[in-house]
Design a protein around this nucleic acid. Structure first.
Lengths: 199, 199, 199, 199
DNA sequence: CATGAATGAGCTTTCATTCAT
DNA sequence: CATGAATGAAAGCTCATTCAT
């Protein structure tokens, strides 16, 4: 009378999620079919529904995982000692965007979020969390005198978020852009924005 | 065996494109069906194919129109007398993003550009055009001493583009963000970035 | 610029309905698939949805047609001169029940009516109509002194309806029952029930 | 290599049958899935097949049980002292038809019987048994002078069966019918049919 | 030029059943 | 005995596209 092994179940779920991620990166949320996912995950079409009640549930699961991972990354940055430096170093990865990581789904998620309430909700939740972390980091910097005290932490956090998103979009707009130079300028953009004005 | 009146033909094409735009804004490129478009344009399904060889052609046509319109907007800005002010004033419209204008399709276009070579090409073409205009404007500003001469025009143009795209994405990430404050900070961001450093 | 020919459309609809009827009689509402219906109607699977928005709509359309036809039959009876005789003669058809007529679907309809609200509604509507016709016929007979004035027209109408339904079920319960004898007894049943008691 | 305890096995079978009955009453033979049944019976999908080789076997088992139970009920009636009274009292339960008893499945069974030979056979077997009981009861009544000797016992039994089935269908045709009045009329129907004609 | 009919591949999902443990 | 994993055929339905008129 053995019972379910929840560990194995969860593991399979993650496997399917990973397979779905690969399919979605390749073909988009709408472009990838459940059969594609099943083929990629090497399971039968019916078996998918043992683990997820619908295709949307997979998307949501994936969005949740991706955003959690992104948030985690941000957290690691803002928890470090030299936040500004860490933050700026983020831009180094710009090139690798459209790779097979969950990050490559950001645009799909943003697009879908405008249409699917469920995904919109999850995106907004994580966005607010990220903004809060940025705002905290800014407030702390202001206390330490390393960041312009005239900035409103929330609005400035929004601004930083915008710069990051915008930078990611660059890869789509022009895959051949001069990464090094642009990254340097992005850093300059941020630095000049945040630094306290000269007396 | 009369010939097509090319003027009327072109007009109808634009009508259909406009109808398609409304459908796509509402439901996305994938979500809107050709029947939806036909219904919106008040034509029969068969007739659609007199004007466009495929759904993708409609998307491409629309992307072209939308990007041309966007480029046009930018051109108007960079052609004016006080470029910086005009540029900054662009952000005022942030709120209305997801409205029924072609702008609302930006995210769809970016997403699709990553998958469809045709759309990718057209997006890249326009992006380069916009960047060139930005770079020109920057160069001119540098000559006039109103813009930091240390900036590389191309890389800085990329940076500006990023900020604009990022700002647009904000509306999706958090539809309730404090527009006024954020716009003010975005302007500050740009100003501090571009202005020549104090001596 | 020819417009739709609504006549042809309606004709095709009826054709499909007829094909669906044959499939349903053969395999039941659940047992017959839309592909079966399409095959029987010699149309492609997608084309079915040009005429009906869903399988349920077909069932409903068919139920409506079948019941309308049944009601029509009853009307013809109760409109004639010698109602009782006409009514009794109805039972002669008992044998042919499970044939390829819409009547063969009565049991399917009754079963489905208990589960599908839509079909339940349509069945109830027609049942009430039939009962009303019976009740009218009974009232008239009472006036003429040919029917027991002590009977409540509505309740008696229900009773007659029961007898008819029950008789139809007999065919399923025992396809080999002695039709002639049973019909005679059914007639006796009705006659004794309706006739005014001897003084 | 222990052997199955046949008692426990049979008990479990009955449990599953009961669970299946509840599901079937709720959703019909086709509408209820084996998973539903497993959930209701609190067993795993695989385990179901230890007790029944197929879903159809469950339906057959249930039909057998239900009809046996119905036959049993009839037997109790016809074995009593005042048969006619007992018979008439049967109609009192009309209201509760679509409840969670096996009786609620009568329509499903009748419908299915027309399609599945197996179920048709079992239904016919029981129908004949019931008719035989009715016929016996009628013959006895005729001997005692309480029932019209002019009636053919078999045909009259068929007639009675029809009335019962028809009465049950009434609940579906109009769930709000006036039970009391209708039952009274049904009793009248039967009484007038069976009673010996006045001299 | 314009229509609505018609197609057929493909979609997501369900489900009776079998398998490995 | 009993479990949950796994299967694969089929369901209802959608949709871009083509055809006949």
């Amino acid at each position: 009378m053995r019972k379910v092994d929840p560990v194995k179940h969860e593991e399979k779920r993650r496997e399917i999620l990973a397979a779905a991620g690969r399919c979605f990166v390749r073909d988009g949320f709408r472009g990838a079919s459940t059969s594609d996912i099943c083929a990629e995950a090497k399971i039968s079409p019916g078996h998918l529904y043992h683990y997820f009640p619908s295709k949307e549930a997979i998307i949501i699961g994936l969005a949740g995982a991706g955003l959690a991972q992104a948030t985690e990354g941000i957290k690691r940055i803002t928890d470090g000692p030299d936040v500004l430096a860490a933050f700026l170093s983020e831009f180094e990865h710009l090139q690798a965007e459209r790779d097979y990581s969950l990050q490559g789904l950001l645009l799909d998620m943003l697009t879908e979020a405008g249409r699917s309430p469920e995904i919109g909700k999850i995106l907004r939740k994580h966005s607010l969390a990220i903004r809060a972390m940025f705002a905290d980091f800014l407030r702390e910097g202001q206390h330490q005198g390393r960041i312009d005290p005239g900035l409103d932490p929330d609005a400035a956090a929004n601004t930083l978020l915008s710069v990051i998103d915008g930078a990611k979009v660059l890869t789509v707009r022009d895959p051949n852009f001069d990464v090094k130079k642009t990254v340097d300028h992005l850093k300059l953009l941020i630095t000049r924005f945040l630094l306290p004005p000269a007396p």
